[in-house]
Design a protein around this nucleic acid. Structure first.
Lengths: 225, 225
DNA sequence: TCCGGTTTGTGGACGATGTCCACTAACAAG
DNA sequence: CTTGTTAGTGGACATCGTCCACAAACCGGA
């Protein structure tokens, strides 16, 4: 098991009385705490590691308390997945934000596309648990709408679209080729992340990994022209 | 729960005595039965549905009997994953085998590449549980070696390589472009399968799905030339 | 033929998990 | 202060993976 003790997500430094300590937390604190705890569990072990009883333990509350905020474990997991997806989106936004260059500059647009892909793959490598969780939304629960009421950051697909639109504006990508090209590009990057992450290529040495990334990058660039 | 009763994987029409029925199965029968049962469970519900106690129930044996053949549940799951991967490989081989045309004919080679991709995506769509299971080999258990002692069919990557080699032989794909191109192509197809299967694109209507597939197909073809 | 060792299945148990029901303390409004 | 709602507690249950001790079936030598 090697259950390393994760950072506690305790809400307040309670008096910790022995029995029936019925201290009540501020509004929404338990729910947020559960999601935060679930996120830590997911970070360490992927979606399957998001176990309700462990999360409530971290928050310092009895198992049933969770059922005041989520209908069942799947609903908690869905909330955690959304949070994980938001973190991925944030990293992508940060990565693309670091690229200098005016909108409309072809070279800058190209670099932004690369930055998006790199951020995606970096997140998948550095946070395999969160990455898997972001895409493990349980059936019967929906992914955020494309417009995105999902959070402060646009979803990955929308960020990719924005950059591709910029490439089209800059003339790097013809209007004809632009149509729908977000899908093969996203697929290629996502597939790469999955195959080298938990998939059959997960044991490939770093050199091979880099080679695969380079080839894929060239392949995508070639697909633009 | 809606636990529909799956087809039983009983081994022999036993006498079914009440207690201590210690009938012993033919060599390896229990192990094979467990894998078959696990495969059914995986087909219906993915890797998480491969629950040891349910598998042994289907085989008609007590839970502990499984531990004579597998060290733990993960090892059983690993065997099931291998079986699922073998089934994917078989479908791919069948798909590519249906394509007529001599080795060396450029048009035939192109069609074979398409057939491989189509078989892959078709399997992912028709057997989502098995597809997910094939790629859900638990950590600490290895995927089959590239050469493939894994089974009667070459692994997906090797089949793809064979077709790409044929494309190179036929002159469709220059030697220079051939190097490593299996990775972006595999990634694109796999990513597509994952994203439209259980991923964020899983609720896309069929028309959109087809459009995405077409665009991806064109993208890959463009990457050859 | 008997006999001792190895396989393989059984019985019973344990801890952990998700979930349900009834109860009650804390809070908000009148 | 009363009253109704909300949010956390306590206890229980079925199910799951796994461990230990035991015994029946099988096998190869004497």
């Amino acid at each position: 098991m090697l259950s390393t003790k994760l950072s506690s997500v305790t809400i307040d430094g309670s008096t910790g009385a022995a029995t029936g300590a019925r201290r009540r937390r501020p509004r929404g604190a338990v729910r947020e705490g559960l999601v935060a705890a679930g996120l830590e569990l997911a970070r360490a072990g992927g979606p399957d590691a998001v176990v309700l009883r462990e999360a409530v333990r971290m928050v310092g509350v009895v198992p049933n308390a969770a059922y005041r905020h989520f209908a069942n474990r799947d609903e908690l997991l869905a909330a955690v997945c959304t949070a994980a997806m938001r973190e991925l989106a944030a990293r992508m936004a940060a990565g693309v934000g670091r690229v200098r260059g005016k909108h409309g500059d072809p070279a800058a647009a190209r670099r932004r596309l690369q930055a998006i892909g790199r951020a995606y793959l970096e997140f998948a490598r550095q946070e395999p648990g969160l990455f898997a969780t972001a895409f493990a939304v349980p059936n019967q629960h929906a992914y955020g709408a494309p417009g995105g009421g999902a959070g402060p950051y646009p979803l990955p697909l929308d960020q990719l679209r924005a950059v591709l639109d910029e490439l089209a504006d800059a003339g790097v990508l013809s209007r004809r080729r632009r149509a729908g090209i977000e899908y093969p590009i996203w697929s290629a990057v996502h597939g790469l992340a999955v195959l080298t992450g938990q998939g059959p290529l997960r044991d490939a040495p770093d050199a091979t990994r880099r080679h695969i990334e380079d080839v894929t990058s060239s392949f995508i660039e070639a697909g633009l022209a």
